[in-house]
Design a protein around this nucleic acid. Structure first.
Lengths: 98, 98
DNA sequence: TGAAAGTGCTTTGTTTTTCAAAGTTAAATA
DNA sequence: TATTTAACTTTGAAAAACAAAGCACTTTCA
């Protein structure tokens, strides 16, 4: 028998990063503020998790404007989509022994 | 919209505890040693995660023998089964927006 | 019989991760 | 002009994860 947790991605051990990814899979882009409110996080905490996902190249940032107000949005990259899917597949495999 | 991660159980943020539970859902009981080998952990690390699950009353310990050799086994409790299921349901709800 | 090895821990100490709070820059609004 | 908002970064503390070593007890092996 094989180690059931070996294929889980360490980056997605965090519920917050998992939440961000699950939101970005269904929304083409989401603003910093919307993520913050949805996940009920402090600025710093969200920013650092987003940074982790960015470093891994799982998400991309866009700095734009709404009217003349700054607006930062995030979207998932192809690599991110792939890694997230692989993680979910691994989860499923662990659990589908049920 | 609702916070997608609010219903995840903090105890199952850990890949190791997730692995233990997923194994105990399908096996009535598993020995310390089998868990250790399957999950590729040091004794101390496994023992402390098992302790966390025990404190939460998600698993139960049986100290027995195989022949004349000591053998500790673990099994899932009804509460553990329920909590794990709830966690998986929450995960599914997060993701099934896919 | 004595040494080595196995089981299942606990203890200790380090490293890693998480997080909140405060500070920051720049623009917008009152 | 003062306050607010957005989106951070920095700092520091608390929590979690983990390996390594120690330990008590037993069994197996030379």
């Amino acid at each position: 028998m094989k180690n059931p947790i070996a294929d889980l991605n360490k980056i997605f051990d965090s519920r917050i990063r998992l939440g961000v990814m699950s939101m970005l899979v269904v929304n083409d882009e989401i603003s910093f503020n919307d993520l913050k409110q949805m996940l009920e996080l402090t600025d710093g905490n969200l920013a650092s998790h987003l940074n982790t996902l960015e470093q891994a190249e799982f998400i991309k940032v866009y700095k734009g404007f709404i009217g003349r107000k700054t607006n930062t949005t995030y979207s998932i990259t192809p690599l991110g989509k792939q890694a997230f899917k692989a993680h979910l597949d691994a989860l499923e495999k662990m659990i589908n022994k049920l």
